[in-house]
Write a protein that binds this DNA or RNA. Structure first.
Lengths: 243, 243
DNA sequence: CATTAAATATCGTCC
DNA sequence: GGACGATGTTTAATG
């Protein structure tokens, strides 16, 4: 199936920015932020209209090789079929694909996708929810500012409980060491400006090491899972169907 | 092109663990670690033999939706064609794809990929190189242990310069705040056990904020780029061609 | 299975 | 464009 005609057709389809698929037996070399090589095997090469190139193997989420746009991909045919792809901006990257056999070749024109991916149940949703339901932080929590900017970064929630100044760090996923150290830093910085200070970490879970650090620092951990909260997000839709 | 026959064929191909491609007009809902939805548009659905499912839009590296194995995907046809996919282990996840139009359907049997992706120019390679060339750390650096285990994690390199105990953190990419804080933690911990202590961060670059922290803590930054080092890696190949 | 850190992480956002 | 943090991060190594 490999021929000069195929090579020409690939270049024509790539030039037209068509969504292009090559299912083939190939070997690949990459050089850029790192360097990689892989021997022969059946893979699927995808070149998207935005020039993203992905080479997917038979398993796993990640492509075996890839490049983000802007890239330029050109097919060459001389004894063997080569696909040569390079990023046209910094950092420079390059993929060379030696195509030994083509099982299938497809290119699609006139594809349209106006859809916008709408994601909810993220850390931002948790924050929005707690801003409007501060009692979930603490029955007496009074919010002063969400996304309170400091030299160390943004405090997710900043407010008071009684006479205590409170900084709250939120995580949508189980909190680990980095999250605990983050709150520790925040508390240490805040203590230089106001007193007394209470740190809080709110997440659906926490690792043992992280909890140890919190206890040592007198920082409170409170369990909260954004997925288990009834959310009216921006478009006023509910999660009833799924929950 | 949508029909009961197509639905049956999809289920047969999925059951046979074939590499399956559907180029189609679809809308998608996801529920799992978060929740997402996207309206109609042309996309490519990929189901790999290991049951990985990817739905790629016309642009970008990341699939618009995906699930890691093990998953179970089933097609249903009743008025409309639905692809329903769910993860069969924790955490539970689910994707519902409403297929409005099928532009192309493909399934490939007997694909083989024995290739092993060999990646170099990583942080590990830098570490290996410095273990055998400790003078690049410092003319008088004497390595005691690479990957020195501590409660805070592994020190990339641990050794001495004169009477100073030295902990070295390596980065293959430009170092940011997290890297600087990591060395700071290491130095603080190490000081509780031995003295005097010298921290070092070696990377091809560093952000301004990170450098400020290092200076305040008396930690040394040394520029090194694994890509610019001549490496003989495990298989004894060189990088001459690329460099 | 949980934890930890690296990754060619990618992606969005802010400065 | 650089820097920073979130991500449905994924992946690999390790206990």
């Amino acid at each position: 199936m490999i021929s000069q005609e195929l090579c020409d057709r690939i270049n024509r389809d790539l030039g037209d920015r068509r969504f292009t698929l090559i299912v083939c037996d190939c070997s690949i070399e990459y050089y850029g932020r790192s360097r990689s090589e892989i021997g022969r095997g059946h893979r699927m090469i995808v070149v998207k209209p935005d020039t993203t190139i992905l080479i997917h193997s038979l398993s796993g989420f990640k492509p075996v090789n890839w490049m983000s746009p802007p890239t330029e991909t050109i097919a060459e045919y001389e004894k063997e079929l080569l696909l040569h792809s390079q990023r046209t901006k910094k950092p420079y990257e390059e993929i060379k694909i030696r195509i030994h056999d083509v099982l299938d070749y497809r290119a699609y024109a006139n594809l349209i996708d106006d859809g916008r991916l709408d994601i909810t149940h993220t850390e931002k949703d948790l924050q929005d929810y707690l801003v409007s339901h501060p009692k979930l932080v603490h029955p007496e929590f009074r919010l002063k500012k969400a996304e309170y900017q400091t030299p160390l970064g943004f405090f997710d929630l900043y407010g008071k409980i009684g006479d205590k100044y409170v900084v709250v760090e939120l995580k949508a996923e189980k909190a680990g060491l980095p999250a605990a150290l983050q709150v520790k830093r925040y508390v240490e910085w805040l203590k230089q400006h106001v007193k007394p200070v209470q740190g809080m970490l709110m997440a659906p879970g926490i690792t043992a090491n992280a909890l140890t650090i919190l206890r040592k620092e007198g920082i409170e951990f409170k369990k909260i899972d954004v997925r288990k909260i009834y959310i009216k997000h921006k478009k006023n839709k509910t999660l009833g169907e799924w929950c």
